[in-house]
Amino acid sequence: MGSLPKYPFLLIIAIFINLFIVKTTSFVPISRYFHTSVLIENKLYLLGGINSNEIFYLNVSLPLDTEKLLWTNLTNNAPIPINNSFATTSCVGGQNNQTIFLFDNDNNLNCIIIYTFNTINQEWNIPTIKNSDQIISVKQNINAACDPNGKMYIFGGYNSKFKKFYNDMYVLDSLKLSWQYLAPLSTIIQPTVRSGYTATLLPNSFIIYIGGTNDDSEFNNEIDMNDISIFDTNSGTWTSMTADSDDVTIQARKFHTAVLISDGLIVIYGGTSNNNSKVPEPLLAVLDTKPEIYKWYCSTTTCLSYSCIS
């Protein structure tokens, strides 16, 4: 038998310190962009980003300390099957809305591959999707909108292989696991071709499409933020609207984010423009969807400028 160390209490302290470090060292995700995120109950899941297969979440029911966010990393046990990037989007569906659907658009395969992540048993799968032959082209820079009935609406996007923008609509039924192409009901009212937009579902079943681009030229001209496309998921019809922005200028942008808060207010944040060389102003703005004509707001209490926080 080996002899005990001369100072056993030092060994005990060393072991205690090591255990303490293991237990208290929290996961700190590195900076990233072109990732995707979903909210399931009280957990905000973040997936991937450029050259990343990480998946982790933040429990938003706990008090938030922005200086020390308590992330839970799932990557060691359940890494994303691909290096998620700007080509993907995610949505929540399936039974009891506990499954993350990750859309991977692979130009090499010329098809959309869907991965599902079961948040209960934390396992990835590739489900068999019916009517996949209805998808006419791979799309990048898309955002999915999910309704309470498990349907995921995939609009427009961009195909970098063919350098083409789209304004078509596909629906994935996450319960029946089947695709459906929604042909426009009117040849007169057509949605604006766009990618890099935001898609926000309102309580009245309207999906609001804001911003983005339909120009892949050198300067990547972005779509006017007042040019709103609206899809009624109940009737399957499109309408368009020019939002009121008399009191504020919301600079055009793509790759921004949007969140619906109470009272029909959509908060947009960030984005980029001019071939990713410019940060649009203001960083944060609010679109009020309650009036007949939607209205943009920006004030010292609701909006930020890049110069204020840089």
Rank of each mutant, 00 (worst) to 15 (best):
M1K: 12
M1F: 15
G2R: 03
L4T: 04
F9R: 06
I13H: 08
I13W: 11
V22Q: 08
I30Q: 00
Y33Q: 13
Y33K: 06
S37R: 07
S37M: 13
K43G: 07
L46H: 09
I50E: 14
N51Y: 13
I55L: 15
Y57W: 15
S61V: 05
T66C: 09
L69H: 09
L70G: 09
T72Y: 13
N77D: 11
F86D: 00
F86Y: 12
F86T: 05
S90V: 09
S90W: 03
T99F: 03
T99S: 00
N105S: 15
D106C: 11
D106A: 08
L109P: 02
F117M: 00
F117N: 00
E123H: 04
W124L: 02
N125M: 06
K130V: 02
S132T: 05
V138F: 07
N141G: 00
N141D: 11
N143V: 14
P148N: 09
G150P: 14
K151V: 05
I154Q: 04
I154V: 15
F155R: 09
G156P: 14
Y158W: 15
K161E: 00
K161T: 04
K164D: 00
K164R: 13
F165Q: 00
D168Q: 05
K176T: 08
W179K: 12
Q180E: 10
Y181R: 14
A183I: 11
S186W: 13
I188T: 11
S195L: 05
P203Q: 07
P203I: 08
S205P: 05
F206T: 09
F206G: 00
I207K: 09
I207Y: 05
I207W: 06
I208C: 03
G212E: 11
D215Y: 01
D216Q: 07
S229R: 11
I230T: 03
I230S: 04
F231G: 00
F231A: 10
D232K: 11
T233D: 07
T233H: 09
G236V: 13
S240C: 12
I250H: 08
F255I: 03
F255C: 00
G264I: 07
I266K: 11
I266Y: 06
I266G: 08
Y269T: 02
S273R: 07
V279S: 06
P280L: 01
P282A: 04
A285S: 13
D288N: 11
I293H: 13
K295V: 06
C298Y: 07
S305A: 01
